[in-house]
Computed example of a mutant assay.
Amino acid sequence: MSFSTLKNLRQILHQNPEIAGEESVTATKILDFFEKLNPDQIIQNLGGNGLAFIFEGGNPGKRSLFRAELDALPIQEIGEPTYKSQTKGKAHLCGHDGHMTIICGLGERLAAQRPENGEVVLLFQPAEETGEGARRILDDPQFQQITPDYAFALHNLPGFPLHQLVTRKGTFAAGSTGLTISLTGKTSHAAHPDAGINPAFAIARLIESLPKLPEQLQGFALVTVIHAEIGSLAFGTSAGKGSLSLTIRAFDQNDLERLISMITEEAKRIASVEKLSCEFSFVESFAVSKNDPKAAEIAEGAIKGLGMEVIEKPEPFRWSEDFGLFSQSCPSYLFGLGSGEDCPQLHEPTYDFPDELIETGVRIFEGIARKVNG
């Protein structure tokens, strides 16, 4: 199949975005594409709308997995490509349409020439943007049929030269989680605040103290206050409820878990002093994306064999990727592919995946697959 067919597929996917948990039409489009390729096995409804296509070699060997993401973002596209999103308030502004197309291109190569050894699994993951999809896939009993020896993924990177490969030993991208601390006291008349328990003082203390906690850790970590709410706009009332929301991130999984523990302990301590009850809710949790040395050796060997420009990034990326959970469960490798120095940043309403990267991505993934599976 030609590059123009893959480009056309990417633009159709771009026109028809579906957000996390709603990717059924996208999954059907991917399924239609693969049915023509006759994979040896197809797994549907994996962790929700997820799909896996298995290409088997004639001899025993390793099982390698290549992952793409199905979901788009709940953001209105304001760029004007001819294939602009046709769904109001939803758009592929992270490049998952391109990542899917690259894996489809890899499927074509594997269908034309089956791997010699082991198996290659092409995985299309739902709900990457919310940090829920990888967990659902790993928890799905069907996944046990395809537990990989190695897992690989890429992400396009605006701000880096087009086609440039961005690699890293160890941590590639931070782990992160959203946390809301809900505090409950007692509402009273604003004329008699002493008759109530107002969480305002506790929230003020938490806003001041929590962002300083990462100073107690050796590695990079960050606590960002993103939202605070106290009572309601009722001038005769002293608030009895409030909440504080944070994003917590770190480059090391142990640091991330320790920081979460420090935050919850500090919040409980302050709540107790102020006689407030305290509850925690976590959302959008992403594990640290860590590159395994052996998987890195395989991938980087294949990349060098293609004669491509590679740079080693000195620091991990501060953003998070749901692929991190795969990297915590099997030897994995995540790398970046430059999408242009002038390309709008990910999640910006004018972002659009560069079609020129499709061929590059397919070549790299096929190089890695042939190295593992022949």
Rank of each mutant, 00 (worst) to 15 (best):
1 M>G: 14
2 S>Y: 07
3 F>Q: 15
8 N>G: 06
30 I>F: 02
30 I>R: 02
31 L>A: 03
34 F>T: 04
38 N>Y: 08
40 D>M: 05
41 Q>G: 10
42 I>Q: 09
47 G>I: 04
50 G>Y: 01
50 G>R: 02
50 G>K: 00
57 G>E: 11
58 G>P: 01
58 G>I: 13
60 P>K: 12
62 K>L: 14
62 K>P: 02
62 K>M: 10
70 L>N: 03
73 L>H: 01
86 Q>N: 09
92 H>D: 02
103 I>S: 01
108 E>A: 07
116 E>K: 15
120 V>I: 13
126 P>M: 06
128 E>N: 05
132 E>Y: 03
137 I>C: 05
140 D>I: 07
149 D>T: 06
150 Y>K: 05
163 H>M: 09
174 A>W: 07
179 L>V: 09
180 T>P: 07
185 G>H: 01
186 K>N: 10
187 T>S: 14
187 T>I: 08
195 A>D: 14
195 A>G: 06
202 A>G: 06
202 A>R: 11
205 R>C: 11
208 E>A: 14
210 L>Y: 01
210 L>F: 04
214 P>E: 05
221 A>S: 12
224 T>I: 13
228 A>K: 15
230 I>H: 03
237 T>V: 15
251 F>R: 00
252 D>E: 14
252 D>R: 12
271 A>M: 05
287 A>P: 05
288 V>D: 05
288 V>I: 07
288 V>K: 06
293 P>V: 07
301 G>W: 00
304 K>H: 14
310 V>D: 06
314 P>E: 13
316 P>Q: 08
319 W>F: 15
322 D>N: 13
335 F>V: 09
347 H>T: 12
349 P>Y: 12
354 P>H: 10
356 E>K: 12
363 R>V: 02
364 I>M: 07
366 E>R: 00
367 G>A: 15
369 A>H: 06
